[in-house]
Amino acid sequence: MKWRAKDIERYLTEKSFIDTVLLPLIPIQWEEAMLHTVREGEFIQIVSAEAERQLTGRVILHPAFTYLKAEPLEEHCKRLEKWKQQLINNGFKFVYFVTSDVQWKTIEDRIEQLIWMPAVPLEHMNDRHRGDFIEENVGSIMKIITSQWKL
């Protein structure tokens, strides 16, 4: 389900079935490597939107967590922890963070359920390759999520 009134209405009536949140972490940066930063965000948004489409009945695609790349990671962590706490308090069992920003990977062990995937310049790919590539990545996100559900 997406972050929109129609879907959330559904969520409110079917709460017991929806226990998973997909939360994209999207960096912002205007100076050096801006294009790369944009790519990281674009890629993660496409992949997480597609994963949401396939698992729409149990997953909510959360509005992205955005942050300035230049700021210290510690601060993002604190803020993110608050977001996560709110979700846990509201009955969500699984909160997945998806990102292309390699910064998060360095503290992978501190953040449970981090899904990191490298961004690629999608704009240089032709339609078919892009489709296949996205599908592969979506597939691996889905595998991670559904395997956790089965436990």
Partner: peptide, 8 residues
């Protein structure tokens, strides 16, 4: 599309 809550 699953008729329950719309998953694939």
């Amino acid at each position: 599309i699953c008729t329950h809550l719309g998953c694939t």
